[in-house]
Computed example of a mutant assay.
Amino acid sequence: MSSPKTVRWGILATGGIASTFTKDLLCDPTTRGVKHLKHTVVAAASSSSESRAKEFLKEVGAPSDAKAYGSYDAFVKNPDIDIVYIATPHSHHYQNAMLCLEASKNVLCEKAFTVNAAQARKLAEVAKSKKLFLMEAVWTRYFPLSVYVREQITSGRIGPITRVISDNSMALDPEKSFPDGKHRMVNPDLAGGALLDLGIYALTWVFQTMYHTQPEDSRQPPKLQAFVKNYEPTGQADEQSTMILQFPRSQEQGGDAHAVATTSLRVATAPGGNMNQPFVRIQGPKGEIQVFGHAFRPLSTKIIDQGGKVESKDFPIPGPGKGSGWYNGFGGSLQSEGEGHGMFWEADEAADAIINGRKEGRYLGLDESILIMEVMDEVRKQGGLKYPEKIETLDYPTQL
């Protein structure tokens, strides 16, 4: 057997999601059955200081020779970086990704990909012109659970998908949680609001089940009706958004299909952390697929056939295991000892693409990322939600 190939990562930004991703990234791939590749971190950059980047590298357990930078411009010039993971707020993705692409770096960019579809199209155009890999980091798509759900759909197990109902909401009590209005969840300057941060996951489940499972040569963009409730304390950020989508399909494919995707900062999908209700229901004439956990980190499924028979399946997330002393998590909470957060699967996909010369992700290509950004553009248009021009612009470089 040939030795695993090592992909060298640079981490751009040093916040919470960067820490979670990098800890997962450095978890031995064989613990999840991946034997043909390995990951290492060769550099990290903080916009605040080089010392913060050094602290980050130490916190995540990066190799001792990894380089720390207090400047993104200097960071992207590092010749040892094979791919950059971008973990800045949505508002900065376009500028940061363009910096990396212009420096001929492959890119895995956090969701939401950009602030608008025009920015996403421009990044895709530059990546293709430079023959670089570019992928939106919608980690949920790469979970074995998500792969399984899509397989159940394409096998025809519940018949042609007729309806999907999907929610990703959190009762964040925004006035108390973010009293100064500067937090990324509510700050318009950071493309704040429920839609781009939480709603992207509700849409992810709609698209990966109802759109991605259709033949590429015949699937069509959905029609959309949207409603947006503004978050009054900061003005242009949505507190709650509701999307009704109609996906055109031929009669042979079951005819038009409907979906409802909802998101909120005010109420929760699972009040009090009660996870015994599905956040997504995927319905067809032969039954229903329900998914449990969080929309971003699904853990189990139930398939209920038309006679009422229930098949339950758990999808535990691997890692070094109990007794390892290793922990990961996000937002102040940790998973059980030795249990990964689940971000390593998207990293594996990106690394596999680098090794094999692919320029896009298999489960979320650039065209689909752009289409989802177009849907969110239309949600904002129908809801009268605009962000500052400096974060909507295609001009590069723009100082933010």
Results as ranks from 00 to 15, higher is better:
Lys131Ile: 01
Phe178Ala: 07
Glu378Ser: 05
Ala117Trp: 10
Tyr363Lys: 03
Leu12Pro: 11
Lys322Gln: 13
Ala257Glu: 10
Leu101His: 01
Pro248Val: 05
Ile354Tyr: 08
Val115Gly: 00
Ser312Ile: 02
Val84Pro: 03
Thr6Trp: 01
Asp24Gly: 02
Ser129Lys: 09
Ala194Cys: 15
Val228His: 10
Gln240His: 14
Asp173Tyr: 08
Pro144Gln: 00
Ala261Arg: 04
Glu216Tyr: 10
Val280Ser: 01
Gly199Glu: 00
Gly16Asp: 15
Tyr387Val: 01
Ala45Gly: 14
Ala270Cys: 13
Leu385Glu: 04
Ser19Trp: 05
Val115Pro: 00
Pro188Arg: 05
Asp348Asn: 15
Ser46Asp: 09
Ala261Phe: 00
His93Arg: 04
Met376Leu: 11
Asp167Thr: 14
Thr14Phe: 02
Pro388Asp: 05
Asp28Pro: 02
Ser264His: 05
Phe315Lys: 02
Lys359Trp: 10
Ala112Lys: 07
Val310Ile: 15
Lys77Glu: 15
Gly16Tyr: 07
Leu12His: 10
Gly255Glu: 06
Asn328Lys: 01
Phe344Asp: 07
Pro179Glu: 11
Lys128Cys: 07
Val379His: 12
Ala18Tyr: 08
Lys359Tyr: 13
Phe113Val: 02
Glu392Val: 00
Pro320His: 01
Pro144Phe: 02
His341Leu: 09
Leu195Cys: 11
Gly284His: 02
Glu337Gln: 02
Lys322His: 09
Glu349Asn: 05
Leu25Ile: 01
Lys359Thr: 13
Ser300Asp: 12
Gly235Ala: 09
Pro89Gln: 06
Lys54Pro: 12
Glu337Phe: 00
Glu252Gln: 13
Tyr327Asn: 12
Glu392His: 01
Ile86Phe: 08
Pro388Gln: 05
Pro278Leu: 03
Lys286Val: 06
Pro188Asn: 07
Gln306Leu: 13
Asn328Gln: 01
Glu102Ile: 00
Glu311Arg: 05
Arg380Leu: 09
Lys58Ser: 14
Arg380Lys: 08
Arg141Trp: 10
Cys27His: 04
Tyr363Val: 05
Lys302Leu: 11
Thr242Asp: 15
Ala171Cys: 07
Lys229Val: 11
